[in-house]
Nucleic acid binder design. Sequence first.
DNA 1: TATTATTTTTAGGTAAGACTAAATTATTTT
DNA 2: AAAATAATTTAGTCTTACCTAAAAATAATA
Lengths: 227, 227
Amino acid sequence: MDILSRNIQDYLKHIYALTEDGGAASTTDLAARLGVAPASVTGMIQRLANAAPPLVEYRKHQGVRLTPHGEKAALEVIRHHRLLETYLVTMLGYSWDTVHEEACRLEHVISEEFESKIAAVLGHPTHDPHGEPIPNEALEMPADQALPLSALRPPQKALILRVRTENPALLRHLEQLGLVPGTKIQVVGYSSFDQNLTIHITQARNLQHVIGFSISSQIYVALQSFP
Amino acid sequence: MDILSRNIQDYLKHIYALTEDGGAASTTDLAARLGVAPASVTGMIQRLANAAPPLVEYRKHQGVRLTPHGEKAALEVIRHHRLLETYLVTMLGYSWDTVHEEACRLEHVISEEFESKIAAVLGHPTHDPHGEPIPNEALEMPADQALPLSALRPPQKALILRVRTENPALLRHLEQLGLVPGTKIQVVGYSSFDQNLTIHITQARNLQHVIGFSISSQIYVALQSFP
DNA sequence: TATTATTTTTAGGTAAGACTAAATTATTTT
DNA sequence: AAAATAATTTAGTCTTACCTAAAAATAATA
Ligand SMILES: [Mn+2]
Ligand SMILES: [Mn+2]
Ligand SMILES: [Mn+2]
Ligand SMILES: [Mn+2]
């Protein structure tokens, strides 16, 4: 298993995302993310587990997690992806809702030379246009203590760090609302019935929005010191 | 045959190159260029000929040529390739002997948006770093009346237009000799025994090189008006 | 705990695109 | 024209990566 096919690279990338916070990645979740039948995932998972060296650790019906080898390979793809997104937005004027698709194709074919050249041109960025951390050249992921906006309650204040979606329509929506990385906000309302949050955008005088859980759980923030 | 696989795209590109000056492309030549067994080429050619619409015209043992459909597809890939090469050299500092490989992978995955963005950034270039013409947006190939340097005899003068090789070692060699697009030269010697040409570089006082046919036939020039 | 419902795996198939070895066809040479 | 050589095609396999349908295992519910 010397050179990894682009399909395998995508599998590893998605397994990484699904296992980032602890648990194992289930067959169904992977199938949904990859747009593929669950049976196909089972087949691929078995190949990844039987590879030499193994890329995932797998116990039937228990889901998968990455081995150190698999994680390294995943981080390499993720670095490519996020550097590319940054490059496309910064240097070629892509909008943040369209970069993902392009980067998802390019990530598998660029050389290490290309990677290091765009990293240099960009000044070795640590975060992509959505605020996602970019692993450094040694593939270490910059740590941050982000938590989902959905976990906040009034009157907590926070700084938006990243937006964890690739959905172009949602990204355009968030941009319209001003809920982008770098924005300072305050939670000013919460409804326990539907989990809606009312968000006030600190910089703007009377701008506030009511957002549902499916949005607030995708936005990651850093809590601001609070008197 | 709606979307063409990258393998098919490469086949079409190489068929274009082999048929550019008239004739048909033979199975063996294609196999050599693609780094694949002749039998594999036969298999692929049959698929290309039976596609709807057909991409090549094929008669057993007679070689192939592109249909108008196939040619359009080939030119699309060639435009991608040459724009990419130009971008990599101009914007990312690649050297002209290393761009080919990178462009050959990227050409199959960039979107039309990417194509038009880099074309715009570069100011819609008409030639790539090797002097090869870049088809315009309508996929029309800019015409030029280039002829191989190997066809010249003393004391003809010429301007180097392009270098038709992807061989990194040869490209580095030519750069060293100063035989790059834009250079003005004069043929000052010819040996009918080995077809060697002695080339004088006009700009430089006493710089001249003896080059063999396998090099001079790869360099394309425009004849300079001659008294 | 027994029965459903959900999730996951197995079994059997397909399509691309490559390979090798053997068979054919074309082209040269004698 | 026959024989030898070179080029091309056919036949039979292989790998990757997907699919559907059926079987099996796990989780949820009565
Ligand atoms: Mn991808
Ligand atoms: Mn991103
Ligand atoms: Mn290519
Ligand atoms: Mn070129």
